[in-house]
Design a protein around this nucleic acid. Structure first.
Lengths: 113, 113
DNA sequence: CTAACGTACAACTATATGGTTGTAGATCAG
DNA sequence: CTGATCTACAACCATATAGTTGTACGTTAG
C-alpha cells in the first residue's frame, strides 16, 4: 500500500505548530519511546490534566500521535510517519540550499579568479 | 570554530513556530535559493508589505534567515544552520522510535513464538 | 452498589499571531 | 531639491493558544 505523502499547507502548518511547544515535544518523545495513557503523561507536567489533554489533542490533530481506548484509559502512541514527513520537508530546504551552492560553484568555474 | 549546537526550548519553539506558516516557509525556500530584498519578497504574496515584514522578522528571530542592509533595502538570506538544527531534533525523535523497535525485537527473541 | 479513576468538554481569561492602516525616516533617481 | 522607493514601527482588530476550573460520564476496584 503506497500512501500519498504529499502534505497540504494546512497539514504542514499543524505539524510544525504542534512541535513548537516543549511540553508537546516531550509527549512526542515519550510516546515514541513507549506508549502511555493521558493521565500517566499528565503526572509529569506542572499543569492541569485538562491542559495536557489539550496538548495531546493538538498532537493527534497533527498526526504526531494516535490515541487508542483501553478500558477507561486512552493510550497515546507516537507516530513516526508524521516525524518523517517533517524531516522530508526540511530535507527539501537543505537540497534547495545545496542547489544554490552548486550554482555558485558553477559560476566561479565559468568566471575564474 | 565549533559552535554550541544545543538549542534551548525557547529557541526550538521559535524555529518550529516560524516554520508553521506557509508564507514563511515559502520565504525560507526562496531565500535559501537566492537572497532577496523584503519588498521583492513581498510582491509575490497577497498581503500588505507590513505583513510580509512581520513574517521576515519572525523568521529572523528564529534564526532561519538573516537580514543585511544594502542601501535602502534589507537583503534577506536563508540560514541553512537553523534548518539543520531542526533536522537534528527530528532525527533524535526517529532514533528514539528506532530504539523502541529494537527493544521490542530483543523482547521477541527472548520470548519466541 | 459505591467510590475512585480516567476522560471529555464547556466556559472563561490572558496572551500571542496574522492581518490591516497609517505615519515617519532613510535612500535613490532625475 | 523633489518625488518615489524601501523600510520601520505603532495602533488596532479578529482569531487562535495555553492555561484554568467545573461538570458530566464511562470504567474499574472493593
Amino acid at each position: 500500500m503506497v500512501v500519498d505523502q504529499t502534505l497540504s499547507d494546512i497539514e504542514v502548518d499543524r505539524i510544525f505548530r504542534a512541535l513548537a511547544d516543549a511540553t508537546r515535544r516531550d509527549i512526542v518523545r515519550r510516546t515514541l519511546s513507549a506508549e502511555a495513557s493521558v493521565s500517566v503523561l499528565a503526572r509529569d507536567y506542572d499543569m492541569s490534566f485538562a491542559a495536557v489533554q489539550k496538548h495531546v489533542a493538538m498532537l493527534e490533530g497533527a498526526g504526531l500521535v494516535t490515541k487508542h481506548p483501553r478500558g477507561r484509559e486512552r493510550i497515546v502512541r507516537g507516530n513516526p510517519e508524521a516525524i518523517r514527513r517533517a524531516q522530508q520537508l526540511l530535507n527539501t530546504y537543505e537540497q534547495i540550499w545545496r542547489g544554490r551552492i552548486d550554482r555558485l560553484d558553477a559560476l566561479l568555474e565559468e568566471n575564474p579568479g
